[in-house]
Simulated scan of single mutants.
Amino acid sequence: MGLAEEIFAVRGGSGHSGRLLGEFRRTTLLVPLSASEDAGLMSGWQGGVRWIYAFTGEEALARFAGARGAGANAHEWEYVSILGARLVDAVIPTVDGPTGVAVDVADEDASMLFPPVVGIVADAYAVDAGADRADAV
């Protein structure tokens, strides 16, 4: 089962969070680049957390671009392909402040958030890690 199917299963109540996280880590995601001068990964802020936008395919990315007003240019957005594991293990530690991953955010019934918590990101970057856990890393 792919990531989109695992998300669907979890949202429907028949999935398993461990399988979902494993599939997220194994999946190559499309992450749009910011149009700003820094050309970093596109992200947004919600609830004090930076959310990196990631998509399971070009169709999901195009829906997001269209929802943001890209119109006919939706298929021209630049993006990088990156494994979910690399996002949480290598990219998130380089970002200032709490950072998670928002997958397929333009798809109301198929989106999923992977927050910066223990078990998803390294304990040193998890907002719920106690001081004793962070020191052990």
Rank of each mutant, 00 (worst) to 15 (best):
G119D: 00
G97M: 02
M1Y: 06
G100M: 00
G2I: 13
D107H: 12
P32L: 04
D104T: 11
A39I: 12
P115G: 02
R50N: 12
G69V: 05
A4Q: 14
G48Q: 00
G69N: 03
G57P: 04
A4K: 15
R133A: 09
G130T: 05
D123L: 12
I92G: 05
A129E: 00
S34D: 02
I7Q: 07
A62G: 10
A106W: 09
A62T: 12
Y125V: 07
I52G: 05
A62E: 14
L113D: 09
D96K: 13
V91Y: 03
F114H: 04
H16K: 14
G57I: 03
V31Y: 05
D104R: 08
V31F: 04
E6H: 11
D38K: 15
P116N: 01
M112A: 13
A131H: 08
V121C: 01
A70L: 10
T28M: 09
A60E: 07
W77G: 13
V10D: 09
L87H: 07
L29N: 07
S14K: 15
V101M: 03
A124N: 06
V105N: 08
L41E: 03
E23F: 10
T27V: 04
S14L: 13
A126I: 00
G71D: 05
G47W: 01
V10P: 02
G100Q: 05
G97C: 00
G97I: 05
G97R: 03
S36K: 13
S17E: 14
G13V: 07
V117P: 01
A9V: 01
A131P: 12
G48R: 02
E58G: 12
A136M: 05
A134K: 13
M1T: 11
A67W: 03
V118K: 04
I7Y: 06
A122R: 15
E6V: 11
G2F: 12
R63E: 15
V103Q: 02
E37A: 07
D132G: 10
A62C: 08
A110H: 14
G48L: 01
D96C: 09
Y79T: 02
G57Y: 07
F64V: 11
G2H: 12
R25P: 04
I120Q: 02
V88L: 04
E76R: 15
R26W: 03
R50M: 11
N73Q: 13
Y125Q: 08
P116G: 01
I52F: 08
G119F: 03
G48K: 00
R25E: 09
I120N: 04
M1R: 09
I7W: 01
A9G: 05
A122Y: 10
G47N: 01
A124W: 05
G44T: 15
L21K: 02
I120W: 05
G57C: 04
L3A: 04
E23N: 11
P93L: 02
A134I: 13
V91F: 02
P32M: 05
G71T: 01
